[in-house]
Design a binder for these strands. Structure first.
Lengths: 210, 210
DNA sequence: TAGATTGTTAATCGATTAACAATC
DNA sequence: TAGATTGTTAATCGATTAACAATC
């Protein structure tokens, strides 16, 4: 699925990496940066960097100077939608779910985690000011707040059922941390985030390089 | 970086997704499966599926029958290195670090999390039988166990220092859950896993599709 | 001016798709 | 046999890279 803007998926995948790097440079007090410096640091070609940036930058880079770091950061953030607030909920308040509920870095990306839900009565309460509700209130709250995006972090055995329940309540995109395939109706977006798989991929990359 | 096997990165990225899907089908009692069924379920083309599978499958698919699910699962697992045991350590035993330490799904991918490390004295101890050591024992234990891969889950402000320390101790690949750019020497593999960024990407995908 | 850097146009490269013969 | 499915070869498509004119 490609965004209507004509920006390729490959570029879309690189934009957060630019942002991460540019923010680090900003922290060092850098004001302007050239495509070749970015390319060197990120192991890309300078032309690729310019092409990517030209797609999202509100102002062209200046010959002999490069790009304004501040403008670039702002442009990428806008482009990626980080300036727009979006409410999300968490299904499952186990270890991982609660760790996410506690995590404060979401705001920087425009994400507002409003609550978590769990079947277990002993999990009900709150974590750092964020409420954990019983799962039977999921539908009510999600509909009331008009939430369209949910994080799924329940045990693998409960994943499909929880997923169905989320979709039932109007969730249109699921970010699943459960390492199992989920059947979802057409039109519902699903993204699997499997830490173990990603880590294993890094392992075999390391093995292959030696 | 492409593996020496001549399998493209695109294919490498799809293999874990095949595995996830095939395991779900296996759970339903399916014995054989055709490329077109896989393609349909995973929103790919049947030819692409056959091309991917032909690269890793030890036995060709049979006309009119398809592929043996069991053989396929086994072949993909072998190819991705899940049958090979690899030791990993965790730097940082905060909420996320401890959640990972507790997580039991790593073994399925050949990953053996041997310990976590933390600067905070109150974190020292163990979680579900896995030890949490003070960070000053990092070097000693990592060298003794010859660990080459580490998970970084410390606060953003401590990330670069912790990263340096890991590399110092002989770690060659870092899976970073800290959402900051890290400077690493050439030859050290780094993979950023930023849950907030991935979730934000899903949000904008959803927005773009509506 | 000379030189560093930009953005663009054309060439290359690699991945996906289409077409089709082979097989059970 | 007929039909479903495979694997392969050729064509298409898209992304990356190379070459270069424009600019401060």
């Amino acid at each position: 699925m490609q965004s209507a803007t004509g920006v390729s998926q490959a570029t879309l995948d690189r934009l957060p990496a630019y942002l991460r790097y540019l923010q680090a440079e900003k922290g060092k007090g850098v004001k302007d940066i050239s495509s070749s410096v970015i390319a060197e640091a990120m192991q890309l070609s300078a032309v690729a960097v310019r092409k990517d940036l030209s797609l999202v930058s509100s102002r062209p880079g200046k010959p002999r100077i490069g790009f304004s770091l501040e403008t670039l950061i702002s442009d990428i953030e806008c482009f990626l939608g980080y300036r727009k607030r979006t409410n999300v909920v968490i299904m499952g308040a186990g270890n991982l779910g609660r760790a996410i509920l506690r995590y404060e870095g979401f705001e920087q990306y425009g994400l507002n985690v409003i609550a978590a839900f769990d079947v277990s009565a002993e999990k009900i309460g709150s974590v750092w000011g964020k409420p954990i509700y019983p799962v039977n209130r999921f539908d009510e709250i999600v509909r009331r707040e008009n939430v369209k995006i949910g994080i799924l972090s329940v045990p693998r055995s409960a994943a499909q059922e929880a997923c169905d329940r989320m979709i039932e309540a109007g969730i249109r995109a699921i970010y699943s941390l459960a390492p199992v395939h989920l059947d979802v109706p057409e039109g519902v977006h699903i993204k699997y985030e499997d830490l173990a798989t990603s880590l294993a991929a890094l392992c075999s990359e390391l093995t292959a390089s030696e």
